[in-house]
Structure formats: structure tokens, C-alpha cells
Amino acid sequence: MAKAKIRIKDIAEQAGVSVGTVDRVLHNRGEVAEETKKKILEIANKNNYQPNLIARALTSKKTCVFATLLPTPSEEDIFWKRPLNGISDAESELEQFQIKVEKFFFEHYNESDFIKQTEDILKLKPSGVVFPPIFKKESLDFIEKLEEQGIPYVFLESKIKECNYLAYVGSDGYHSGRVAANVVDYSTPANGDILIINLAKNLENVHHLNKRTQGFLSYFMDHGRNTGLKINIEIPTSKSALIKEKLDDILSKNQNIKAIYITGSKVYKIAEYLLRNQLDDITLVGFDPIEQNIKNLNKGSINYLIGQHPYQQGFKAVKKLFEHVMLHQEINRDEILPVDIINRESYKLYQA
């Protein structure tokens, strides 16, 4: 039979002192005679006393403020609604512990707006921060200031390995790229060319897309069956007119393109182009079962999507901050979530 946990009341009885005296010693509050203090600590250590941290957090009257920074979940960037929903649900669950989450947003792929929002977060002086390090250079500047102030931070969506981050929750971007490559490899003629599209400007600074591109290309360098060209292009915005211009040009020059890989979630933008131009012989693979992508998956203009559990990323990231800041628990630093290969038959089973 497991030994019953010792309580403060039990320690007080064994030491012959009041519960209040034991509480002051264990929580280092107020003056207690050295001999009494020693006796109490010896009894606590002997019985492996563990404080009820959850009860302590429940009785705390101090509000703990966390900050989150995400791209604005607009119609164009609807993917970000899912981690935001996870963050909001975690906040609701932790409301009883006086946890408040201040949510900040920046325009996706706008470095200047990202910097402005990080400045506002630093003024807030939160107890912890959750954010995706989309812009590597600007994220490193933000991280340096967080670390100067002793503010723990949790990454989602992607991570910068060389940082002293508290935790990361998300998929492995490099491995996700390799998974996508495997799907493309077996859905494309062995001699067909493959087009890689990054819907972003300054790809080298857009951390997660860069990792997915590297992983995708590494697969074919290692053991891919496809021997066709791997053509990598960058389209700085997702405006339909610019996409049409770029794809009209590249497809007219490379008529052997048999697959297109999109490193982000705006796969539907390319699917719409393929539909309009009746290019149904090109395999299209990208990320995230957002509403627009599912619609095109059902039409057959998208063949496969890679799912990466964005809701869980947001929910678990906030919970990790709570466990570290309020419960002083040791945190599992890297929680790598699985990626899922989704097609028109399986998307209804996918749990975001």
C-alpha cells in the first residue's frame, strides 16, 4: 500500500508547534527560532513532504499576466485562428488561478509591425510570452530583451534552437518538409519536375518556411525516386494577380512541372489558379486543413495537406508557462507534435 502523503498539520503535531509556524518555515515567511526551524525541516524531509502547489496557486490573489504574439488571424491568414482558439481555451481553463492572457497581433510578414508589437509587450512586463519566431532576425532581438528582463518564453509553429527558450510546442519544420516530399515523390512521375513555392518575401528570414524548404529538398538528396528538376520560387504576396503572373511565366517555361509544393497554408491560392487553367494533371501539396484548403481538397484541386495541430500548439504553450511560472514544475522543453497526411477521404477524421 502506498504511504499516505504527510500534511502540514501532521508535521505540526510531530514537531509540537502550530500549523502557522510550520507554514512560515516551509514557505520562508516570518521569523522562527532556529532550533524549531531545523526540527520542522527534518520532519518534512524525512517524510518527503511535497507542497500542494495547485492549492497554493488557487489561493493566490495575485493576477499573473502572460502575453501572446501571433499574426493577425484574417481571412487571408485564417490558419492563426486555431492556435488563438487554443490560447483562449487555455486562458479560460486557468482563469481560476488568476491567469490573464494579453493577446497581441502583427501583420503577417511585416517585420516593422512585429517589432512594434514586441515593444508593447516589453512595456507590459508579462510573466511569460508565447510567440512563433517567424522573423529570425527580429525574433532574436526580441529574445535578447526578454532574457535581459528574465521573462520566460515559449515558441510555437517553429523554434530557434540556439536560444534559451523555456519550451517549444509544434511540429519539426524540417521533418514536415521531408514528409511533404515523400508524398510528392510517390504522387509524381519519376522524371516530372517539381515546383516549390514560398508565398513570402525574404525567405531566409522567414524561419519556418525556410526549414520546410530545406527538409523538402534534403529528402530528394537522400533517397527520393524523383529525378526531375526542383524549381524554387518566391512570391512576395498572395495576391491573385501576382500569383497568376508568376505561374504563367514559370509554367510556360517549364512544361514538365508535374507537382507543386507550397510551404505554407495558402495552398488554396495556387489551387484556384490550377482550376481556372484546367491544370488537373499537376499534384498539389501544402500545409494545414483550413476552410479554404478543405474546399479545394474536396474539389480535387489539392491532393494532400500536411496537418500540424495548431490548436494544440496554442493550448499547450500557455499551459507550459503556467506550469513553470505558477507551479514551478520542470518543463518538457521540446514537445514535438506529430504531422498528419490529409486527403479528401481522411480530413473529417483530423483533429486540429
Rank of each mutant, 00 (worst) to 15 (best):
I306T: 02
A241P: 03
S265G: 01
L203F: 06
Q278S: 14
R225E: 14
Q313R: 00
E204P: 02
A200Q: 08
K246H: 07
I294N: 03
K244G: 03
F216N: 08
V206A: 09
S218V: 02
E204K: 14
Y273L: 09
S238H: 14
K253Q: 12
K319H: 05
K319S: 01
N205D: 15
K211F: 03
Y304N: 01
N256C: 02
A271H: 04
A241H: 14
F315A: 03
L242R: 11
I257R: 02
L274M: 09
I233G: 08
L275W: 04
S252L: 08
M221Y: 12
A317Y: 01
N293R: 05
F315N: 06
V285K: 07
D281K: 14
H223D: 11
R276D: 14
F287M: 10
D248G: 03
N205K: 09
K266I: 07
I302L: 02
G286K: 04
L284C: 02
Y273G: 05
K299A: 05
H207D: 04
N277Q: 10
K230G: 10
N277W: 02
V318H: 00
H309A: 01
K244F: 11
P236T: 11
K295T: 11
H309P: 00
H223Y: 08
P310E: 08
V267E: 04
Y304K: 00
T283R: 08
D281T: 13
K316V: 02
H223C: 14
N303A: 05
Y261A: 07
A259N: 07
H208D: 09
E204H: 13
A271R: 05
A259R: 04
D288C: 09
N202C: 09
F216G: 13
L297N: 05
D288T: 04
L203P: 06
S238D: 15
N226S: 15
D280R: 09
A317C: 00
K295C: 00
F216Q: 12
N226F: 11
N202H: 13
D222C: 09
L275R: 13
V267D: 06
N293E: 02
I306Q: 03
I270W: 07
T237I: 09
Y261E: 05
T227P: 04
N303W: 04
I294S: 01
I243L: 13
I235R: 10
G224W: 10
D248M: 07
I257V: 12
K211T: 06
F216S: 12
V285I: 13
H223N: 15
A271Y: 11
E234D: 15
V206F: 14
L297S: 03
N256H: 10
N210W: 10
G314C: 00
V318C: 00
S265H: 12
T283P: 06
K269Q: 11
P289E: 09
Y268I: 02
S240G: 06
I294L: 15
T263P: 01
L275A: 12
L209G: 04
G264S: 14
N210A: 10
K246S: 09
Q308C: 03
H207P: 00
D222R: 11
I231K: 15
Y304F: 15
V318P: 00
K295N: 04
S238I: 13
F287A: 11
G264N: 14
V206Q: 08
E234V: 10
N293H: 07
S240H: 12
P289T: 11
D281S: 12
S301T: 15
L247C: 06
I250K: 00
T237N: 12
Y273R: 09
H207S: 07
F315T: 00
Y304H: 04
S240V: 15
F216Y: 12
G286F: 08
V285S: 07
